[in-house]
């Protein structure tokens, strides 16, 4: 064996290859979105017509409105519930903690198709059991729709928020709390003036995650949505099924740009925090 070798180039080589692997398909889509040819095989000429088509497509705007509506509501609720559960998990020491932790942690790993179908089965069972009762008593029709989509989104977003906030809590300087209490601050006062400002970046990051996850989700939404509901991912999927209309190229580029900007901001937030801590 050779001894005293300088740092191997191999890791750098793998990193570069992987980055190429990750970006080549995406770049090709971006190039194709400016190609006037419909099937994107050969380069025809530069054109913005797919973007023009994209911005004039009514169905896309409707899907976007639905997506944002669902994302905003589920982000608000899941951020609240997730933060509270992180606080409870962080402070509790009793036997239920293990179960509680498993309940919050495992949804992060369980495949989305299983979350989708299990929620669908729940909703179907509920509709079977109390559908007619609800109709006759309150005049409410229980059915799959925006409400079931929002419930599903809150459920899977919550765990992410809880984990991010919990991470932040574990880095939390506990002596600050004791100092505040020694100085006579009440529990409420300590929470709002000491704990909350400390974990706020975690909450913001969690909310951002939740928002992105909600916008991104296709599988779970597809299982629990009603017949007419479309979100952007649902729209893209049905467009892909109908063939591959070039409008999707343009839509993908818009998606990529938005993702890039959001991730860039989130990254800045996170690194700024870790630097200011040092």
């Amino acid at each position: 064996m050779k001894t005293c070798k300088r740092n191997s180039r191999f890791p750098m080589f793998v990193t570069l290859l992987t980055l190429i692997f990750l970006y080549v398909p995406l770049i090709l889509v971006a190039v194709a979105s400016f190609n006037s040819s419909k099937y994107g095989g050969a380069w025809n000429s530069f054109s913005l017509k797919w973007y023009d088509r994209l911005f004039n497509e009514r169905a896309i705007w409707e899907a976007l409105a639905n997506t944002l509506f669902i994302a905003l509501i589920s982000t608000a609720i899941s951020t609240t519930l997730g933060t509270l559960s992180a606080l409870a998990l962080y402070r509790s020491k009793n036997r239920l903690k293990g179960i509680y932790y498993a309940l919050i942690h495992t949804p992060l790993i369980v495949p989305d198709i299983l979350q989708g179908i299990s929620l669908l089965l729940l909703f179907v069972t509920l509709i079977n059991l109390c559908g007619s009762l609800c109709r006759s008593l309150f005049g409410i029709e229980l059915e799959l729709g925006m409400t079931t989509i929002i419930i599903a989104h809150i459920t899977f977003c919550m765990s992410y928020v809880a984990m991010v906030v919990l991470d932040r809590l574990h880095e939390f300087d506990y002596t600050l709390l004791e100092a505040a209490q020694d100085l006579g601050a009440s529990g409420m006062y300590t929470f709002f003036r000491v704990t909350l400002p400390q974990i706020l970046p975690g909450i913001v990051a969690g909310a951002l995650f939740a928002f992105m996850l909600s916008i991104d989700d296709f599988v779970i939404t597809f299982f629990v949505k009603g017949a007419g509901d479309t979100t952007l991912p649902i729209y893209i999927q049905s467009a892909m099924r109908r063939g591959t209309p070039a409008v999707i190229n343009a839509l993908s580029v818009v998606f990529l740009l938005v993702t890039f900007v959001i991730v860039f901001i989130a990254q800045k937030l996170v690194t700024k925090n870790s630097e200011s801590k040092k």
Binding site: P25, D216, Q237, L256, T259
Partner: peptide, 25 residues
């Protein structure tokens, strides 16, 4: 950042990109 961006890019967009990439023409 370059690794995280594809991670957060819409799942369908990523699959779609492969359909374009591996497309017959």
């Amino acid at each position: 950042l370059l690794i995280i961006v594809p991670f957060w890019t819409n799942f369908l967009v990523r699959i779609y990109a492969w359909r374009v990439f591996l497309h017959a023409d």
